[in-house]
Design a protein around this nucleic acid. Structure first.
Lengths: 231, 231
DNA sequence: AGAATTCGGTAACTCATGTTACCGATGGGA
DNA sequence: TCCCATCGGTAACATGAGTTACCGAATTCT
């Protein structure tokens, strides 16, 4: 019954380390609810109570948030194999912090949290791993948010840019960096406007601190970038 | 052996819902490591590998982070009954994201994460609750960080102030608000400088949007505040 | 009581960033 | 082929917020 979904489910970090053979049994054990949503239909509305964590089996969904003036901001877009709602599912309020809509015909698997953390009647061994994975997912999410807070807390635009690129540098150990986002997204991520970002990048290139073209960056003066971060 | 610590441990949300009678057995089951640290000694250094989640049994600790220029920023100060290290303990890297030092003579209980999520040989019932609590703690942390990102992403200072106070208003349903922080901390939280914050608060008071004295605020024009947030 | 420290308001000045608007390059669809 | 949308750079201008410095009030220490 759930076999057809195993390939998609393997993509989520929720099941890393769990054998395929175990997954089907675990799914039965957790009695997921699978729903279809036609394109542009609403999956959940901000403030709605939520029943568990969700895995997108097919299609894609957008996460949006109402702004004060009635507009919308796109927070994220997820594709098949992505997990969502995990942050709020275990929180006190258990309410959706944003609105979720299907941007294509989609299929979603909802796992009630009691069944995720619950005592497994089959006492399946993978369950413990599942919980560890869940903890890891939440930790990583918190760590990412923490990093973002650090970026946003830097007061100068040059500092923010430097911090972001240096982090990539530390990670890849290479001065050649390819970002996974376009300018608008980058500006958004750093909490500045796109023209301001473009201008500052231009200045930094003029000063020989870095070179760039589109999403490709080459860091040429790491010291200058480190300087820029100093509070 | 662990009985003496039960009163402190009850303060942490990690044990909420767990009976005192069960706690002692659970502690044995998790074999915690208890260490003493004299005042001003270092408990953990940024980037060190970590072995688990930590509970402060006695004393107080500071969490600091090195800035690029060799200075330090105080991120938090914890007291007896506080949990720390929970975010990184379950992350991929399992390294301390900041430095922890004892600001008084302190006693710390470290719970290795394998024992926290591990299969309990006594199959103690509280263990499941413990794990749920751990998930809740991480979720709440992520939610708080998320909120902070929202504040920091607002471009205008007036917007940030408004958002922060309106959130309190929604929460308490009262226009009379008492903040749990002083001006410097508030400025830091919003990612601005203290004089800028003071100035803007002054302007808002002049315009009759709010009144304040120290940590006490009275919101008089909610509409104006909502206006200010509009991206 | 006097001194030192912390806290918060204020003011003058500077400048970094937001705003707005326009333009060219690119690429996909009709 | 033309049109239209998206993306990113640029420029002029306005302004919001950082910087620095000072001051008084409240609090704590000696």
């Amino acid at each position: 019954m759930y076999r057809q979904y195993i390939d998609v489910l393997k993509k989520t970090t929720l099941f890393t380390g769990i054998k395929e053979s175990e997954m089907e049994a675990m799914l039965y054990c957790m009695s997921p609810r699978i729903s279809r949503y036609p394109r542009d239909s609403v999956i959940a509305i901000e403030h709605d109570p939520m029943e568990g964590i969700h895995i997108l089996l097919k299609g894609s969904v957008t996460i949006t948030k109402e702004t004060e003036d009635g507009g919308r901001t796109l927070l994220a877009k997820y594709h098949a194999g992505n997990l969502f709602g995990e942050m709020a599912a275990f929180s006190e309020s258990k309410r959706w912090p944003a609105t979720v809509e299907a941007s294509e015909d989609s299929k979603v698997m909802a796992l009630p949290i009691q069944n995720v953390v619950g005592v497994c009647s089959n006492s399946c061994g993978g369950h413990r791993l599942l919980i560890i994975n869940m903890l890891t997912i939440l930790s990583e999410k918190a760590m990412r948010l923490n990093r973002r807070v650090e970026y946003l807390s830097i007061r100068t635009l040059r500092g923010k840019i430097s911090r972001m690129l240096l982090d990539q540098y530390e990670h890849k150990k290479s001065p050649y960096i390819r970002l996974g986002m376009n300018r608008s997204e980058m500006a958004d991520f750093l909490g500045v406007t796109r023209p301001s970002l473009s201008r500052e990048l231009g200045h930094m290139q003029d000063e020989g601190i870095l070179e760039y073209a589109g999403r490709e960056f080459k860091l040429t003066d790491l010291e200058a970038m480190r300087m820029a971060i100093r509070s």
